[in-house]
Amino acid sequence: MSDPILSLNGLHTDIAQYHILQGVDLVVPRGQVTMLLGRNGVGKTTTLKSIMGQWAAKSGEIHYDGQDITRLSVSARARAGIGFVPEDMGIFRDLTVEENMVLGCTSGPLDPKRKDWLLSAFPALGTFWRSEAGNLSGGQKQMLSIARAMAEDRKLYLIDEPTKGLAPAIVSTMARALRELKAQGASILLVEQNFSVARALGDSAAVMDDGRVIWNGAMSELAENKDLQERLMGLSMEGALR
């Protein structure tokens, strides 16, 4: 296997008095979609925020694209090529869709070809290009959040539950856009509760429990092995897989 785009070694993160991440070891292969799975409250969002630097790691190491970024600032990690789509979407409500997109480009103006591609992937954004983002629906905000992260080339995307609460048509739109992104060579670490989506998109998967990664391997292996799913996640995925 080629060198991974991201690896976490024994990552510990505390939030206030709570010890959330308790030694996370994770490898995200380059050019693949890696699904981060697990029940609610096991530390998936905290893992993404720790990678991004929004929660400081108490101990452990984060290696990204050959460099140790454990002590880098949030903005330095983003400038190094990590795009982040948080669970709350992080939309600037008082800014227009266009202004949100412009902010996604740190190194210059929005490339017209890139803009055309994003608007073909998410046409609703074109409809509301000059409207305040606060007026968008939940699904449109989610599209904007992902499109903004894609506004310029990034090597790694951290995406937290992009399909939560969305209609199937919009989930399908998201999935297609993420596949196109991967086809362009990007690596994606995706937190996802919807196992059907995870199975459809993921190349590899990591399952978390109690602040640790308890399994890391090929998505196909997890998708095909119901016993493994039950053992790792404590749930039968039979219904979801049907």
């Binding site: 903005s75 400038r79 948080p86 600037f92 902010l103 740190t106 903004r148």
Partner: peptide, 24 residues
């Protein structure tokens, strides 16, 4: 201006501005 945009966005959600790569 871009700097004005960053300031307005920073007033609304500073952590997200940093996560996009700006030194707030």
């Amino acid at each position: 201006t871009k700097i004005g945009l960053i300031v307005r966005a920073g007033v609304e959600n500073g952590p997200m501005v940093e996560a996009l790569g700006y030194r707030l």
